[in-house]
Simulated assay, not measured.
Amino acid sequence: MTAFTLAELAERLGAQLHGDATALISAVGTLEEATSGQISFLSNSKYRKFLQTTTAGAVLIKDEDREFCPVNALVVKDPYVAFARIAQWLDSTPAAAQGRAANIQIDPSALVPDSVQIGANVVIAAGAVIGENVQIGAGCFIGEGAVIGAGCKIWPNVTLYHRVQLGKNCLVHSGAVIGADGFGFANERGRWVKIPQTGTVLIGDDCEIGANTTIDRGALENTVIGQNVILDNQVQIAHNVQIGDHTAIAGCTVVAGSTKIGRYCIIGGACAINGHMDICDGVQITGMSMIIKSITEKGIYSSGTPASSNLEWRKNSVRFRQLDQMYQKLRELEQQVQRLSSAPPQDE
């Protein structure tokens, strides 16, 4: 079991230590439930009431909260980020694969270093190139000419189609499908004619792809995911989409074809983004929003309607259908007011 003294953690984080430097920390926990061998954090002062009764071995806090902490403390600028770092150092998640199973298929032309761990029933096709220290879980398929960068961890039952490229240190969760055909068809008098999707998918370093997320290959050019992009579970990225570095997209969001999303964007769950949109850097989109035109200015955008009582919703639904009628009446009233205000005064 991995464990660190508070002195070691303070040195790694560049934190100010207040308390017992020799105290051992072997796990993370919440302020309410953490015990003596665990470390927790306080990043929002409204949860300070839990700090006063915590039994954690130590707490990551800001300097302004230190006087309220009854246990060992590590003072840092951002407790939540520090907590994430420590959680990584103490992570006990098992490997996606250990060693090499007997029933795997590796094409003789594929380049697979000895350091690659491979689970049962994995198929690695011709010309694939796998980097050092990659873990490939059971039941994965790595297509012809695919490239996986060093240090990637691929959980079971992931499919990488032909020529897909993953950067270094990516994490791909179970059920993800990367490089399937984009939705490209021509219509000939009512009959759909398929357009072969000849591009691929290029994914940068340090990305995370959620479970059952799908990223379609490009039609002619490539679908491109930048560096340190995180995609939640069940996200759909269509063909030729481009996503800038450090952008995060929450679960069940759909991005239609040829849309460009900038850097440092945050997109909430269950959003729908129309095709051929341009979204600039630093945009935040709240959950269940529908984007039907490009966004050219940094800011927060919303279109989802929060839930209300059924009775209120039914009333508003009727009123919504009457909007055009109400608008026309309002214009008539405005025109009447304008005529009255511009009419010459009457002689008394």
Rank of each mutant, 00 (worst) to 15 (best):
G210R: 06
G210P: 08
A211C: 09
N212C: 15
N212K: 04
T213M: 05
D216V: 00
D216R: 00
R217A: 09
R217G: 08
R217C: 08
A219D: 04
E221V: 13
T223N: 12
G226F: 11
G226E: 12
I230A: 07
I230F: 00
L231N: 05
N240A: 07
V241W: 11
Q242V: 15
Q242E: 14
T247G: 00
T247V: 05
A248F: 02
A248H: 04
S258M: 10
T259H: 09
K260V: 15
I261T: 04
I261W: 04
G262T: 11
I266E: 02
G268E: 05
G269C: 00
C271W: 02
A272R: 06
G275D: 15
G275M: 06
H276E: 05
M277V: 07
D278N: 14
I279H: 06
G282M: 03
G282E: 03
G282A: 06
V283E: 02
V283Q: 01
T286D: 05
M288K: 13
M290T: 13
I291L: 12
S294T: 10
S294R: 09
I295V: 11
E297F: 10
K298G: 00
K298I: 02
S303C: 09
T305K: 11
S309T: 15
N310W: 05
R314T: 02
R314N: 06
R314D: 01
V318A: 09
F320L: 15
M326P: 01
Y327I: 14
Q328L: 14
K329W: 05
L330S: 05
R331H: 10
E332F: 03
E332D: 14
L333H: 08
V337M: 15
